[in-house]
């Protein structure tokens, strides 16, 4: 029950989806269609699970008075407030009709004032850390590191209007040295070559892992009992 049934489910779903590509007729075509919809619906339960888990973890921290437990109250209050105003569509279109993110709803208000500002600012912090890392960590210690830095410089200049101002005067015979052209070339040729090799490597890894999962060789998702 705990091991065999999950393995059977994974096998049937995985094999059906692979066969559906090569035999795009019923019942496999229909299975592909239905399984995709089922997957989308189960994904929503994962969101609910995430919310439940958050409450459980922070609830425990509050009840045990763990380190920084007072901040857990902030998390729980924020979570419950957002959940209530969203679940009952408070404000905005009348009753439960209309889009939950409609203008005027409290949910949209909290989204714009809290979610947007926090997420956008957290990501923008990275600009400062990239600057600091550029100063302290990027050293042309070896030939390879120098190559990396040169490529980065060309991209940094070539992907801004600065590149046009710096080398826009070059004659047509030397057009390939125009920095924006150089940066486009780096992206389209050596970068593409490197990324393609990485992509092929990742694809092979994913294909083999998928097969191992479908055939029940890889069972780590079952926890310790699958071994």
């Amino acid at each position: 029950m705990r091991v065999q049934i999950p393995l059977i489910i994974t096998f049937i779903v995985g094999i059906a989806l692979i066969v559906a590509i090569f035999v795009p007729h019923d019942p496999f075509h229909r299975m592909n269609e239905e399984f995709s919809v089922y997957f989308d619906l189960i994904a929503v339960f994962a969101f609910i699970l995430g919310g439940g888990n958050l409450l459980k973890i922070h609830g425990n921290r509050i009840s045990r008075r763990s380190r920084d437990w007072k901040y857990s109250i902030v998390t729980v209050v924020g979570f419950l407030t957002m959940l209530i105003v969203g679940a009952f569509k408070i404000g905005g279109p009348p009753g439960l009709t209309g889009d939950v993110t409609a203008e005027g709803s409290w949910f949209k208000f909290m989204y714009d004032s809290v979610f947007v500002s926090c997420q956008a600012t957290m990501f923008s912090l990275l600009a400062f850390f990239v600057a600091s890392a550029s100063y302290r960590a990027f050293r042309a210690k070896t030939k390879e590191a120098t190559l990396l830095l040169i490529a980065a410089f060309i991209i940094l200049i070539g992907r801004t209007p600065l590149g046009h101002y710096m080398t826009g005067w070059l004659p047509q015979q030397l057009e390939f040295l125009h920095i924006p052209n150089l940066s486009n070339w780096i992206l389209s040729i050596p970068n593409m070559a490197g990324q393609r090799a990485i992509m092929i490597g990742i694809a092979l890894g994913i294909i083999s892992t998928s097969l191992k999962l479908i055939l029940g060789i890889e069972r780590s998702y079952l926890g310790g009992e699958g071994k």
Binding site: A131, Y135, F138, L156, I157, T160
Partner: peptide, 12 residues
């Protein structure tokens, strides 16, 4: 971008 390039150059 220019400032970042300057950081890398000065750091080096």
């Amino acid at each position: 971008h220019l400032v970042i390039i300057a950081f890398v150059v000065v750091g080096n």
